[in-house]
């Protein structure tokens, strides 16, 4: 009875929300209106001046990494925070009393010729494409974040077919282990902050790339620094993607080393649930 009452109240509130939202959006300038405030205030500068001021052809990259570079620093921090959080939440403590069994999870290699071959062929291209996406963020869609996700996924693909890191070593045969990935992620975030502080050291504001002594043409300097920032994001994101996958799919020890796993269960046994 109480539950039903609560559901009814929730439905009422949600209905109100929907109607309110509809009423609200009807009041907004029509979609596609070139004379709307959003199209005529602030944003024209990004369109008309980005090339001259930041050297980037891709205006989204210019806004992301330069005009609103501080947001992007925050974004990098958010993704790192997720990796850190998953690490804290899922990493089992070894040495102390055992709190968690390593459990099933993907703690074994997938034995399939088809998958194996596909991954062998695919992964290098994925990794290469990721770097391409990073470097070309200036002139085409893409940038540090997208490249980083792809690179991380490439590492994960390799990791899936080549099996887990050996318990006695920090790194698996291919791709860094979770410990190295985690260190990479923090290094990426630190590098971003370092670029920001470097700009302050040369007399500018935080993240004010223009003052960095990288050349004569300010736009060119900004372009170079933007690439540096994107690379930092790339490193942080690809590290975090690997950490997230490793902690969520496999489980790691607190030191960042893989959990010593005893006999991994065969695939069939895991899929009953």
């Amino acid at each position: 009875m109480k539950a039903r009452l609560r559901a009814a109240a929730a439905a009422l509130i949600l209905g109100g929300l929907f109607v309110g939202l509809l009423a609200g959006v009807r009041d907004l300038p029509p979609i596609g209106d070139p004379s709307s405030p959003a199209s005529t205030h602030v944003s024209p500068r990004f369109i008309e001046e980005a090339r001259r001021e930041t050297g980037a052809l891709n205006m989204v990259t210019a806004v992301l990494a330069d005009y609103r570079g501080y947001d992007t620093l925050g974004e990098t921090a958010v993704i790192f925070a997720a990796g850190l959080g998953a690490f804290v939440i899922l990493a089992a403590s070894i040495g102390g009393p055992r709190r968690e069994t390593p459990g099933p999870g993907l703690s074994h290699r997938v034995d399939s010729l088809l998958l194996d071959t596909a991954a062998r062929v695919l992964a290098p291209f994925l990794l290469l494409f990721a770097v391409y996406v990073l470097v070309h963020g200036h002139v085409s869609p893409g940038g540090g974040f997208q490249g980083g996700v792809l690179f991380g996924l490439g590492l994960v693909t390799l990791r899936l077919v080549w099996g887990p890191p050996r318990p006695d070593r920090a790194a698996s045969r291919f791709g860094p282990g979770v410990r190295a990935s985690f260190l990479l992620a923090s290094a990426g975030l630190l590098a971003y902050i370092a670029i920001g502080i470097a700009a302050m050291a040369f007399g500018g504001a935080f993240l004010d790339y223009g003052v960095l002594p990288l050349g004569q043409d300010p736009a060119h300097v900004r372009e170079l620094a933007t690439l540096g920032v994107e690379a930092a994001v790339f490193v942080a994101v690809s590290g975090t993607v690997a950490v997230l996958f490793e902690t969520i799919a496999v489980g790691v020890a607190e030191t960042g080393r893989p959990l010593p796993n005893e006999d991994p269960a065969p695939v069939e046994a895991r899929e009953e649930g």
């Binding site: 602030v42 944003s43 990004f46 008309e48």
Partner: peptide, 10 residues
């Protein structure tokens, strides 16, 4: 570039 020609990147 003219502002009216491009989608709003912000």
């Amino acid at each position: 570039a003219i502002a009216a020609d491009f989608m709003n990147p912000l």
